[in-house]
Design a protein around this nucleic acid. Sequence first.
DNA 1: CTAGCATCTGGACAATTGTCCAGTACGGTC
DNA 2: GACCGTACTGGACAATTGTCCAGATGCTAG
Lengths: 191, 191
Amino acid sequence: MEIAVERGRATRQRLLRAAVALVGEVGWNGVTTRLVAKRADVSPGVVHYHYASVTDLLIAACTEHGGVMLEQISQGLVEQEDLADGVTWLLGELASYPADDPAALLLAEAFLASSRLPELRADLAVLLNRFRVTVAEWLRAHGYEGDADVLAVLLSALLDGVALHRGVDPGLDPQALAVPLRRLFASEPQA
Amino acid sequence: MEIAVERGRATRQRLLRAAVALVGEVGWNGVTTRLVAKRADVSPGVVHYHYASVTDLLIAACTEHGGVMLEQISQGLVEQEDLADGVTWLLGELASYPADDPAALLLAEAFLASSRLPELRADLAVLLNRFRVTVAEWLRAHGYEGDADVLAVLLSALLDGVALHRGVDPGLDPQALAVPLRRLFASEPQA
DNA sequence: CTAGCATCTGGACAATTGTCCAGTACGGTC
DNA sequence: GACCGTACTGGACAATTGTCCAGATGCTAG
């Protein structure tokens, strides 16, 4: 019962991946047991064997994949050497959302669904906070003179907002935001 | 057949109102024919009499109510006498989202759904653009020295992002964003 | 009053849903 | 070999879905 467990783990990963892709394609409530099963190439019963319900699967998929997404963004940001590079990098990252990655709006989808799922909301709040903390630390480490926590909150909201709006208006060019964003980063304490 | 037409109009309004409320409560895909009918206190068949499908009703409801919401925000902003008042007013407005208004996230819900509904996307793009234009004109009229169009885009995305994040983290206090936001508004052209 | 019209009713219909389960497959242990 | 546990199959089940429609309702015009 060693290989069997391993296979189970692999199947669960495939279910999660399928769920993530489907949330991007048909929305949170559009994901059904059979759709996931078909996408993951397993029989419909498997979903219920590994997860108590479709909702449980979606919660697991969104917290996991959402966590990875936020981790990738914050890690990419942290690798930037100064604040100016950070702005450039963030805008470049935004330019690939959401068209190139159907799951780019997964977090937005999860945020909306979380209003009816307290458990999911708690998970997402943790992810969101971890992201903010990482960003704030990076800001402080590179000489941002204002309140780094506040700017981190503003940035995370702005990123989600831009991704959301780019879904409606693909013409929204993130690069255009460079000027005001740079002003935000390069602060003199204030007037 | 005068009173009858009037009654039809009223019924349609009740359906739209019910749809808006339900999108806020159960999400875009959670709204069903029977739910709307029950909420609007009409028989299920009425929905199909006035709208070809539930999706059509949702599209109509979101474009109408979403338009009114954006109109209210931009009008409230336009009434502010200077840029500083504008920041204060926007943040105050955000503080009531989304807890006080179950339909506050209606636009976010519609934005996500629009990726599968080109017709809806077109409608939303028009609303979004109208909002941006109004904001940009107000910025210019009150002496904003940077690119007003860009700041309008950034602001609209930020507002949606903050509303979305406040659904997950009600502790997010919009007032905390006052300092960086003021810096954005009070520009010297740039370095 | 009759005829005509927009509106509305309430249920029929097939299709799809989430959930559940009896049975199968298969690697590991004895 | 027999046995066990994990993983999976494929279909049954009631409930809910979107859609449609035959008929009732009530106003208006002639």
